[in-house]
Computed example of a mutant assay.
Amino acid sequence: MKLLVGKHAGRNSVFAVNDDAATNLSLLSSAVGSDLRSLLTNPELLASLSARIAGSDKVAIEDILPALPIERPGKTICLGLNYADHASEGGHDMPTYPALFMRGLESLMPSGAPMVRPKSSTKLDYEAELMVVIGKGGRHISPDDALDHVFGYTVFNDGSVRDFQRKTPQWTPGKNFDNTGAVGPYVVTADDLPTGASGLKIESRVGTEILQSANTSEMMWPVNKAIATISEFATLNPGDMIAMGTPPGVGYARTPPRFLKPGEVIEVEIEGIGICANPVIDEE
């Protein structure tokens, strides 16, 4: 099922999406709430609502203002250098363990919201990524069991301020500027996508300019191995999100470098999930 969390008629709700129309699941059941958290922890709830969707009133997608799928995600853990060609274009050796970093809540915003180029830099870059939404928590999860812990998948643009990313060996500063990490708008449940969301075309673009184009099958650490690796050191909880790294074609590795500019709209699209589109603005 394709799900959308967004504001309609003055309140945030959860919608089931079919083409250009959506059903407000929060109106069908008060147990759903205003984001995906209740559905993550109660899979039977979503199943019980499925039969009621066809006969319910519909809302036009364009009338819904997207919000974050989980209002306050517990952890957002990101993989770096998960595509071999991206590691190579950045001059990195092939990693034997994934580069991992975390994003804070203020760095995230929904699809449609402005991506903010900060006052302190003009080197705002784009990164098209698959994002995993954890449904069932756990620790020391095996690769064989890992996909049972996935609720669904969404689109992520890991906007990166490159000069700050490289001020230290740790990437935290460049990955945590406010309003640089775009999420959504849709979350597609795992049962509606190929196993591990592998084999999906992933692309970023500005207008007709294609910046990145690759396939999720090219990830060195697929979703099950990423979950197993992370759960070795951290307990995963429902609502945690994992960004799976970006393919080659990022702006800093181009000649000349190609950074995002105010007035542009950066789009990230993943086959079967949707398009995350955000206008770029300067920080006020």
Rank of each mutant, 00 (worst) to 15 (best):
K7G: 01
A243Q: 04
D85T: 13
T208E: 13
P185Y: 04
I281N: 01
T154Y: 08
I230L: 15
I202K: 10
S217V: 09
R166Q: 12
D63W: 00
L260N: 04
N18Y: 12
I230S: 01
P257S: 07
P256K: 07
P43G: 06
E271M: 11
L46Q: 09
E218L: 14
L25E: 04
G112M: 02
N237E: 15
G199N: 11
E284Y: 10
G239C: 06
P262M: 10
E71T: 15
V265R: 12
K2Y: 00
L27F: 10
I210S: 00
I230E: 03
Q165S: 05
E283G: 00
P173S: 10
A228F: 11
G207S: 02
I230F: 07
I242R: 05
P110N: 02
G135L: 08
P247L: 07
S38V: 03
V265C: 07
G80L: 08
E267R: 03
E267C: 12
A214E: 15
Q165L: 12
A84P: 06
R139H: 13
Y126P: 03
S29K: 06
E71D: 14
P256Y: 09
N215K: 09
T180M: 01
V14K: 00
L45P: 02
P98H: 04
A228G: 11
V188Y: 10
G159W: 07
S160W: 05
L46N: 08
P98A: 04
A21P: 00
L100H: 02
V59E: 04
F233C: 11
A99T: 14
Y83V: 08
E264I: 03
